[in-house]
């Protein structure tokens, strides 16, 4: 498996698919049963050649599912553990990170007195302060409640923009992945089912059925309008415009949204007198069978953006659909993040 050395790569798949094992192998925490691991030009493990670089020499930032703070140290002690061992590198702004993660008031507290979200924030800042060349996240948000999760997702999103360090992010939550990742590796049953850029991969027709709900388009666009009366925002992207429920978005910001394959209805002409807000003009690209014999997946092109629709085979025939046919897609889009 080769992963890009920039941006966020998501390892996505059902529980028990081998995502964590993969991450532990990269970090060098599990040595047995691993063949070869290399980062850039550096070989970290090559079992036939008896090469093994121990984890503490790999300069990896690892954020575990449970925050795993050192119980005998204060928050500051935890943060400085890796920072000191990395030689307090001057390019790392410790105070800035403390502020970014909102830890200023917690520095003297013990780990046991922190909430789950606070602990995970400390764990992330601690990993960043160890001056890593690679950041590994193992479902860092799955043990948190919704509010803490939303907060940390925002932090991660801004980190992606601010940081040059490649990240590998393990998750079984498609919304997290769709919001954060640039690149995705779909793992199923211990092997790679598909990988590539997020948008292309999630709209492929040959994905294993176990990934069912995850299948669908991820649209990246810019918020261009806001309807305060109806509490909607307007998102412009390559294939047109979408209205989405408003949360805290502001005009001008970039925003991703997800359009699940089940949330797309196809029609041959734009519908009037329909409650559907969003209708996109598309061209049929290809069709493939879905997990149930009555269903099929239709790949669509909306002005350069890929969409996926899951419809019945009966409808496919009734509408006379074929590659190249123009259709109107009524979509229910879910904005990702705030």
């Amino acid at each position: 498996m080769a992963l890009p050395a920039h941006g966020i790569t998501a390892l996505f798949g059902p529980s028990g698919a081998g995502k964590t094992s993969c991450l532990r192998a990269i970090a060098g925490l599990d040595r047995d049963g691993v063949g070869r691991v290399a980062f850039g030009d550096t070989v970290w493990q090559d079992t036939p050649r008896r090469v093994f670089v121990p984890p503490h020499r790999r300069r990896i930032g690892y954020v575990f599912q449970e925050p795993s703070l050192f119980a005998h140290l204060s928050v500051a002690g935890n943060l400085d553990y890796g920072f000191r061992r990395a030689g307090r590198p001057a390019q790392l702004d410790r105070d800035g990170l403390v502020e970014r993660f909102g830890l200023g008031a917690l520095l003297h507290r013990r780990a046991a007195t922190l909430s789950g979200g606070e602990r995970q924030r400390v764990a992330m800042a601690r990993a960043l302060l160890s001056d890593p060349v690679l950041l590994l996240f193992d479902e860092p948000l799955s043990a948190l409640d919704d509010a803490a999760r939303a907060g940390l997702l925002g932090q991660l999103e801004s980190l992606r923009a601010a940081l040059d360090v490649p990240m590998v992010y393990v998750s079984h939550n498609i919304d997290e992945v769709a919001r954060l990742a640039d690149h995705i590796v779909l793992i199923e049953g211990g092997r790679v089912a598909a990988q590539g850029s997020l948008q292309d991969t999630l709209t492929r027709l040959d994905l294993p059925p176990a990934l069912g709900e995850a299948v669908g388009a991820v649209i990246e666009g810019e918020v261009v309008g806001c309807d305060a009366r109806d509490q909607l925002i307007e998102l412009a992207f390559a294939g047109g415009r979408l209205w989405l429920p408003r949360r805290r978005e502001v005009v001008g910001q970039a925003l991703r949204c997800r359009i699940g394959a089940r949330d797309v209805v196809l029609a041959l002409a734009p519908q009037e007198g329909s409650s559907a807000l969003n209708q996109l003009r598309c061209r049929v690209v290809a069709m493939a069978g879905a997990d149930h014999p009555s269903q099929c997946l239709v790949q669509l092109d909306a002005g350069g953006s890929r969409l996926l629709a899951r419809i019945t085979r009966r409808s496919w025939h009734a509408l006379g659909l074929a590659p190249g046919v123009e259709v109107w897609a009524q979509v229910k889009a879910v904005a990702l993040g705030a």
């Binding site: 970090a27 925490l29 121990p54 984890p55 503490h56 020499r57 300069r59 990896i60 930032g61 690892y62 575990f64 449970e66 795993s68 050192f70 119980a71 005998h72 553990y81 890796g82 061992r85 990395a86 601690r126 990993a127 160890s130």
Partner: peptide, 27 residues
């Protein structure tokens, strides 16, 4: 194993891990 794994990912070698993590936690 977890605190020791965390320490090794933060750059602590085996003896360092023993002194700075295992021993204080086992006090």
């Amino acid at each position: 194993p977890r605190p020791l794994e965390v320490a090794s990912c933060l750059g602590a070698g085996p003896f360092d891990r023993f002194c700075s993590v295992a021993l204080p936690l086992a006090l």
